[in-house]
Design a protein around this nucleic acid. Sequence first.
DNA 1: AATATTGTTCGTACATTTGCGAACTACGAA
DNA 2: TTCGTAGTTCGCAAATGTACGAACAATATT
Lengths: 106, 106
Amino acid sequence: MKKESIEQDQLLARLSKAMGHPTRVAILRFLAAQESCFFGDIHEVLPIAKATVSQHLQALKAAGLIQGEIEAPKVRYCINRENWRQAQKLFTEFFCDCTAKTSCCE
Amino acid sequence: MKKESIEQDQLLARLSKAMGHPTRVAILRFLAAQESCFFGDIHEVLPIAKATVSQHLQALKAAGLIQGEIEAPKVRYCINRENWRQAQKLFTEFFCDCTAKTSCCE
DNA sequence: AATATTGTTCGTACATTTGCGAACTACGAA
DNA sequence: TTCGTAGTTCGCAAATGTACGAACAATATT
């Protein structure tokens, strides 16, 4: 296996793992649909404890998909647009470049 | 949250979870680059025990991303092209439709 | 029939993930 | 300074995931 593929695999796996939970997908979808919002807004639409929400947010942040900044007593979260685009590209290439060889895409 | 989104989130999460390990991404990449191959071919390029390889393959199969059929003493694996395309569509829509609202895609 | 080949399944050990309440931190308001 | 608000972190329990060798099953070969 080529070395560059291994690194790409690891990055793709990290991103996928971050997206590997329904709650985290929901959070991403929620955040991606707006410019930004506070922790409370996210917690409000989810049926889980705030500690758990916070945990999921840390996971998404660690993967680079979102970012958060403290604002007064609140915390504002938003999609990390740059990494989002990179992830988009990685997934697209993964699904399409791969399949190109066996003509799955047409 | 809309009900249809919840189901989509769950499907996307299931697919992501299946892709959430470097070895499984490598397996998918390996399989996607060819029409099909045997278990042994996959095991050969991976530095892990065959029991573990088999486990990862079951995970990918459970997610619907690959399929396998017995052929003599060997087992032939390949990408599940139909689900592959569906996954491709889901990820693309997730990353792009979401971002369309906030003009991240341009 | 006995043996070899190819994978799967089982049992086990250890690590990670998930979810929660409680305790904590940091800040603004009274 | 005391109190309230908004989140994070801690500590725990239960569930899942990861990896392996050993045992097993199914077929092909001798």
